[in-house]
Amino acid sequence: MKIKMKLNKYFLLVAFSLVAVFTVSAQDDVDPRRKQAIDSLALEKVKDLSKYISIIGDKKTQFSEAQRVMDRAEELFADDSEMGVSSLSREEITYYKVREYFERLMALNYDKVTIKWYDIHYISDLEKQPDGTYVGVITIYQRFEGTSDDGLSYKDTTKKDITIYVKKKETQIAGRTIEFWDVLLGDVRVTETSA
Protein backbone atom coordinates (compact mmCIF):
# COMPACT_ATOMS: atom_id res chain seq x y z
CA MET A 1 0.00 0.00 0.00
CA LYS A 2 2.82 2.38 0.98
CA ILE A 3 4.73 1.53 -2.21
CA LYS A 4 1.62 2.23 -4.28
CA MET A 5 1.20 5.65 -2.65
CA LYS A 6 4.86 6.49 -3.26
CA LEU A 7 4.51 5.47 -6.90
CA ASN A 8 1.46 7.71 -7.28
CA LYS A 9 3.40 10.59 -5.74
CA TYR A 10 6.27 10.12 -8.20
CA PHE A 11 3.84 9.84 -11.10
CA LEU A 12 2.19 13.13 -10.17
CA LEU A 13 5.58 14.84 -9.76
CA VAL A 14 6.74 13.66 -13.19
CA ALA A 15 3.41 14.69 -14.76
CA PHE A 16 3.59 18.22 -13.26
CA SER A 17 7.21 18.58 -14.40
CA LEU A 18 6.29 17.58 -17.95
CA VAL A 19 3.39 20.06 -18.02
CA ALA A 20 5.71 22.83 -16.76
CA VAL A 21 8.36 22.04 -19.39
CA PHE A 22 5.78 22.03 -22.21
CA THR A 23 4.27 25.31 -20.99
CA VAL A 24 7.66 27.09 -20.96
CA SER A 25 8.46 25.63 -24.38
CA ALA A 26 5.13 26.82 -25.80
CA GLN A 27 5.70 30.34 -24.47
CA ASP A 28 9.15 30.38 -26.08
CA ASP A 29 7.91 29.33 -29.52
CA VAL A 30 6.22 31.99 -31.62
CA ASP A 31 3.05 31.07 -33.49
CA PRO A 32 4.19 30.44 -37.13
CA ARG A 33 1.70 33.00 -38.47
CA ARG A 34 2.93 35.58 -35.96
CA LYS A 35 6.53 34.77 -36.95
CA GLN A 36 5.58 35.26 -40.62
CA ALA A 37 4.09 38.68 -39.78
CA ILE A 38 7.32 39.67 -37.99
CA ASP A 39 9.42 38.44 -40.96
CA SER A 40 7.28 40.54 -43.32
CA LEU A 41 7.53 43.57 -41.06
CA ALA A 42 11.35 43.43 -41.09
CA LEU A 43 11.42 42.92 -44.87
CA GLU A 44 9.12 45.93 -45.26
CA LYS A 45 11.53 48.12 -43.26
CA VAL A 46 14.31 47.27 -45.73
CA LYS A 47 12.01 48.12 -48.65
CA ASP A 48 11.19 51.43 -46.91
CA LEU A 49 14.94 52.14 -46.66
CA SER A 50 15.32 51.51 -50.39
CA LYS A 51 12.65 54.16 -51.11
CA TYR A 52 14.31 56.63 -48.74
CA ILE A 53 17.71 56.11 -50.38
CA SER A 54 16.21 56.73 -53.84
CA ILE A 55 14.65 60.00 -52.60
CA ILE A 56 17.85 61.19 -50.90
CA GLY A 57 19.96 60.41 -53.98
CA ASP A 58 17.49 61.97 -56.44
CA LYS A 59 18.77 65.40 -57.54
CA LYS A 60 15.19 66.62 -57.98
CA THR A 61 14.48 66.21 -54.25
CA GLN A 62 14.36 69.54 -52.41
CA PHE A 63 16.94 70.02 -49.65
CA SER A 64 14.34 70.25 -46.85
CA GLU A 65 12.60 67.10 -48.08
CA ALA A 66 15.91 65.23 -48.30
CA GLN A 67 16.77 66.25 -44.71
CA ARG A 68 13.38 65.03 -43.46
CA VAL A 69 13.75 61.73 -45.31
CA MET A 70 17.27 61.32 -43.92
CA ASP A 71 15.82 61.63 -40.41
CA ARG A 72 13.24 58.92 -41.19
CA ALA A 73 15.87 56.67 -42.76
CA GLU A 74 18.25 57.12 -39.82
CA GLU A 75 15.48 56.08 -37.41
CA LEU A 76 15.41 52.65 -39.09
CA PHE A 77 18.95 51.88 -37.91
CA ALA A 78 20.42 50.80 -34.59
CA ASP A 79 22.86 53.32 -33.11
CA ASP A 80 26.32 53.44 -34.72
CA SER A 81 25.30 51.27 -37.68
CA GLU A 82 27.50 51.57 -40.74
CA MET A 83 26.92 51.44 -44.47
CA GLY A 84 29.51 49.93 -46.81
CA VAL A 85 30.40 51.74 -50.05
CA SER A 86 32.33 50.11 -52.88
CA SER A 87 33.52 51.18 -56.33
CA LEU A 88 34.56 49.41 -59.50
CA SER A 89 37.72 51.51 -59.51
CA ARG A 90 39.08 50.30 -56.15
CA GLU A 91 39.28 47.10 -54.19
CA GLU A 92 38.61 48.27 -50.65
CA ILE A 93 35.17 48.93 -49.16
CA THR A 94 34.70 52.09 -47.12
CA TYR A 95 32.28 52.12 -44.17
CA TYR A 96 30.45 55.25 -43.08
CA LYS A 97 28.02 55.92 -40.25
CA VAL A 98 24.55 55.90 -41.85
CA ARG A 99 23.93 59.66 -41.46
CA GLU A 100 27.27 60.45 -43.10
CA TYR A 101 26.48 57.97 -45.89
CA PHE A 102 23.14 59.73 -46.59
CA GLU A 103 24.78 63.17 -46.63
CA ARG A 104 27.51 61.98 -49.03
CA LEU A 105 24.85 60.38 -51.21
CA MET A 106 22.89 63.64 -51.41
CA ALA A 107 26.05 65.59 -52.30
CA LEU A 108 27.25 63.27 -55.11
CA ASN A 109 28.66 65.25 -58.01
CA TYR A 110 26.26 64.05 -60.72
CA ASP A 111 23.35 65.83 -62.39
CA LYS A 112 21.19 62.73 -62.30
CA VAL A 113 21.31 59.85 -59.83
CA THR A 114 19.06 56.80 -59.81
CA ILE A 115 19.30 54.10 -57.16
CA LYS A 116 17.14 51.00 -57.23
CA TRP A 117 17.09 48.09 -54.81
CA TYR A 118 15.73 44.75 -56.01
CA ASP A 119 15.65 41.04 -55.17
CA ILE A 120 15.27 41.81 -51.46
CA HIS A 121 15.16 38.55 -49.50
CA TYR A 122 16.27 36.76 -46.34
CA ILE A 123 19.51 34.82 -46.51
CA SER A 124 19.39 34.04 -42.82
CA ASP A 125 16.02 33.69 -41.09
CA LEU A 126 15.24 35.57 -37.90
CA GLU A 127 16.48 33.40 -35.02
CA LYS A 128 15.79 34.03 -31.35
CA GLN A 129 18.90 34.85 -29.32
CA PRO A 130 19.32 34.15 -25.57
CA ASP A 131 18.44 37.82 -24.75
CA GLY A 132 15.11 37.51 -26.62
CA THR A 133 16.21 39.50 -29.69
CA TYR A 134 15.56 37.94 -33.09
CA VAL A 135 18.49 38.34 -35.48
CA GLY A 136 18.53 37.67 -39.23
CA VAL A 137 20.18 38.82 -42.45
CA ILE A 138 18.48 40.25 -45.55
CA THR A 139 20.27 40.57 -48.88
CA ILE A 140 19.58 43.24 -51.46
CA TYR A 141 20.95 44.15 -54.89
CA GLN A 142 21.52 47.84 -55.59
CA ARG A 143 21.73 49.32 -59.08
CA PHE A 144 23.42 52.72 -59.05
CA GLU A 145 23.50 55.06 -62.05
CA GLY A 146 25.02 58.52 -61.91
CA THR A 147 25.31 60.76 -64.98
CA SER A 148 26.51 64.32 -65.54
CA ASP A 149 25.61 66.79 -68.28
CA ASP A 150 29.28 66.88 -69.34
CA GLY A 151 29.15 63.17 -70.14
CA LEU A 152 30.59 61.80 -66.89
CA SER A 153 28.85 58.55 -66.00
CA TYR A 154 29.22 55.75 -63.44
CA LYS A 155 27.14 52.59 -63.10
CA ASP A 156 27.48 49.57 -60.87
CA THR A 157 25.53 46.82 -59.12
CA THR A 158 26.33 45.87 -55.55
CA LYS A 159 25.09 43.03 -53.41
CA LYS A 160 24.63 44.07 -49.78
CA ASP A 161 23.82 42.13 -46.60
CA ILE A 162 21.83 43.89 -43.90
CA THR A 163 21.68 42.56 -40.33
CA ILE A 164 18.19 42.78 -38.83
CA TYR A 165 17.36 42.97 -35.11
CA VAL A 166 13.79 42.48 -33.89
CA LYS A 167 12.82 42.79 -30.25
CA LYS A 168 9.55 43.09 -28.35
CA LYS A 169 9.30 46.42 -26.53
CA GLU A 170 6.71 48.37 -24.53
CA THR A 171 5.51 51.96 -24.70
CA GLN A 172 2.74 54.05 -23.14
CA ILE A 173 -0.05 55.33 -25.41
CA ALA A 174 -2.80 57.40 -23.74
CA GLY A 175 -2.08 55.72 -20.40
CA ARG A 176 -2.09 52.19 -21.84
CA THR A 177 0.90 49.91 -22.17
CA ILE A 178 1.35 48.82 -25.76
CA GLU A 179 3.69 45.99 -26.70
CA PHE A 180 5.22 46.28 -30.15
CA TRP A 181 7.90 44.69 -32.34
CA ASP A 182 10.85 47.01 -32.71
CA VAL A 183 12.73 46.35 -35.96
CA LEU A 184 16.19 47.88 -36.29
CA LEU A 185 18.66 47.57 -39.14
CA GLY A 186 22.31 47.02 -38.35
CA ASP A 187 25.42 47.25 -40.51
CA VAL A 188 25.02 47.07 -44.28
CA ARG A 189 27.98 45.10 -45.67
CA VAL A 190 28.97 45.02 -49.33
CA THR A 191 29.56 41.45 -50.51
CA GLU A 192 29.85 41.88 -54.31
CA THR A 193 30.37 44.72 -56.79
CA SER A 194 29.96 44.39 -60.55
CA ALA A 195 29.41 46.62 -63.58
Binding site: D31, R33, K169, I173, I178, F180, W181, D182
Partner: peptide
Protein backbone atom coordinates in the same frame (compact mmCIF):
# COMPACT_ATOMS: atom_id res chain seq x y z
CA UNK B 1 -3.95 36.01 -32.98
CA UNK B 2 -5.87 34.68 -30.00
CA UNK B 3 -4.18 36.98 -27.46
CA UNK B 4 -3.17 40.63 -27.65
CA UNK B 5 -2.57 42.03 -31.15
CA UNK B 6 1.00 42.42 -32.40
CA UNK B 7 1.90 46.00 -33.29
CA UNK B 8 4.52 47.72 -35.41
CA UNK B 9 6.35 50.55 -33.61
CA UNK B 10 3.75 53.25 -32.78
Amino acid sequence: GSGNPDYDEP
